[in-house]
């Protein structure tokens, strides 16, 4: 069909909160730093396997430093969300990216999760579930007040929309 080649999903309208970049950075540091420290300490203490340990440390840093610097900013450009009267639409990921759409009439639950780190940055993760075991939409890094408002709004719309959600 003509023009078919040019179809694509557009970016959802809203960015997540800017503080999410810091949050993702801290999370990345928590992944990378302990590994690097353990390898470093072992390399300092143990003589025999030192070359191997140093090699592993270098590899960790070569992968880890760009990960800590690039991943959060990249994610910030990808992670976006939008809710209309008919549907919730979100994009997530960085290297592997995912677009998810769920219609309001099929929404079963809307809830938020705030881990300790997220509380520190006043962020929330919003999860919208449908009857599908695989259809949940997650929006990371929302301002926690905005997330609370959104839960209220989505629940209200979902209830007002007819349909048995299955």
């Amino acid at each position: 069909m003509p023009g078919e080649q040019s179809l694509r999903l557009r970016a959802p309208k809203n960015l997540v909160d800017r503080r999410a970049v810091t949050w993702w950075t801290v999370r990345a540091l928590l992944d990378v730093v302990p590994v690097a420290v353990v390898l470093g300490v072992l390399a300092a203490v143990l003589e025999e396997p030192r070359p191997w340990l140093v090699a592993a440390l270098v590899a960790t840093l070569v992968v880890g430093i760009p990960y800590v610097l690039i991943m959060p900013r990249w994610r910030y450009r990808v992670h976006r969300w939008e809710s209309t009267d008919e549907a919730v639409y979100a994009r997530s990921g960085w290297l592997w990216q995912e677009w998810r759409v769920a219609p309001m009439s099929r929404i079963q639950t809307v809830d938020t999760v705030r881990g300790p780190l997220q509380q520190l940055f006043r962020l929330s993760t919003l999860t919208v579930t449908t009857a599908s075991a695989k259809g949940a939409i997650k929006i990371d890094g929302l301002d926690h007040e905005l997330a609370a408002d959104l839960v209220a709004r989505l629940t209200a719309i979902a209830q007002a929309t007819p349909g048995d959600a299955t």
Binding site: R10, T84, V101
Partner: peptide, 21 residues
């Protein structure tokens, strides 16, 4: 693009608002 077109024809009300050409 092609798969998006097919899905869009089956559930247009779901995808149309988010698809651009």
């Amino acid at each position: 693009a092609e798969a998006l077109g097919v899905a869009g024809r089956v559930v247009p009300e779901l995808l149309d608002p988010f698809v651009v050409r």
